[in-house]
Design a protein around this nucleic acid. Structure first.
Lengths: 232, 232
DNA sequence: TAGATTGTTAATCGATTAACAATC
DNA sequence: TAGATTGTTAATCGATTAACAATC
């Protein structure tokens, strides 16, 4: 609302610091959810020695439409070259910055049954920028055992494990009945992002982000289509 | 377009067979994706002895808004009672019918590393109406071993395993590089619904349904929010 | 320059929310 | 009957698609 600063031309700057501003102001949730897929596609074509790729080529590998890919990337700023395409390495770096993958992120896993055990050893976490820094379980038979090179700690040490590891993210792989309690304690200990595998809706305060993966539900959704097909 | 049949009143029937028509004509994808959550919520309140529940109560347990729950359920037909709420057992049955859970569905798991192993033993599949009828792996060291009471079969027997078990659904837990090939062979063998855990977009023909769960991507999406928060 | 391909706009489509009349 | 609660409508919001001008 103020007068244009002295020396300004006809394109009024909105900002005192116009250079090198962080790329992403607001990125829609649906776009954010697809960015990891683009990162995978870029890694794949880069491994094949490709240096520059068009939206058509990348979209094909990522399994989306070229229009959608371009639209999504446009929210991160302008990183392609008209007539040429996208520089694979550069775009990869930009998406990494937007997703906050410039540093390794420490993660804690709570619940070391079959699934938690598998996730503790899952190479995909490490490959994508995460380090498992702590393991917690309530079962005295499991506590003290070594999983993926770490000692499993008892439930009462949950907050310590989170703080000592500096974790702001956690994975919940406990039975449904224990999930909300574990969630509350993780949040109290400072965790702000939770990946929940327990088949239960979790209540969290504002500022905490939960993503739930229910393996049984996924199959049920597939069953719907399977069945709808057989009826037509 | 024809003349009203003799004896019709002012509400013209559109159909020759107006009674007991299947509840679901078209259910939007976003609604279908939430139905398993409603099923879980219903099971939970039923276990607590509740016979009738309002949309407010159910929505609270399911973690959605009451308006959304009512809207979703309205696509399945009219199963509540105004002024009273929903009969828990009846609604549970209706959602089960829509999802095609009236019979057990046979599922094959391909890839018995840590994750596949954990899924083969996952009680949530059995509890939600699925039976694991076959296991397949390419590693000769794994083939022939016993997992979850089943013998692991070699890759070349994939089509036999699918046909013998009558499976129309499968879970892929192989490394990314092998996923598309496994997918193609599953589809050729008659599988129509695939739950994919390999971090790779799968190409499938029309009529085949793929749901992909990428655990690394889930953490990356959480990382975005974690990071966006720390910047504001 | 001519051909290729992005970034953006506008149009379409689908999903969510809010409000309330119908009705138990 | 009065109070409660559904089922549905209309309004809003967000996401996707298609088309093309900008530009390398």
């Amino acid at each position: 609302m103020g007068a244009p600063p002295p020396g300004s031309t006809d394109a009024p700057p909105r900002d005192a610091a116009p250079l090198v501003r962080p790329a992403a102001r607001t990125v829609p949730p649906s776009t954010v959810a697809r960015l990891p897929g683009y990162l995978r596609a870029l890694a794949e074509v880069e491994a094949q020695g490709v240096r520059t790729a068009s939206s058509d080529a990348l979209a094909d590998v990522a399994g989306v439409s070229p229009a959608q890919l371009r639209k999504d990337l446009s929210f991160l700023g302008s990183h392609g070259t008209r007539g040429v395409g996208y520089d694979v390495a550069h775009l990869r770096g930009q998406i990494g910055v937007v997703l906050g993958l410039t540093r390794q992120r420490p993660v804690v896993i709570v619940g070391l049954g079959n699934l938690g055990h598998a996730l503790a050893n899952y190479p995909g976490f490490t490959e994508r920028g995460f380090v498992v820094v702590g393991l917690v379980d309530a079962d005295p038979h499991v506590v003290g055992t070594q999983v993926a090179g770490l000692r499993v700690e008892p439930a009462e040490r949950l907050a310590d494990v989170v703080r000592e590891g500096g974790a702001t993210m956690a994975v919940i792989t406990v039975p449904a009945g224990a999930a909300q309690d574990v969630c509350d304690r993780l949040v109290a200990a400072g965790v702000r992002g939770i990946l929940n595998f327990a088949p239960r809706a979790l209540q969290v305060p504002d500022g905490v982000d939960v993503r739930s993966v229910d393996l049984g539900s996924e199959l049920q959704i597939l069953a719907f289509h399977d069945q709808a097909r057989s009826m037509s």
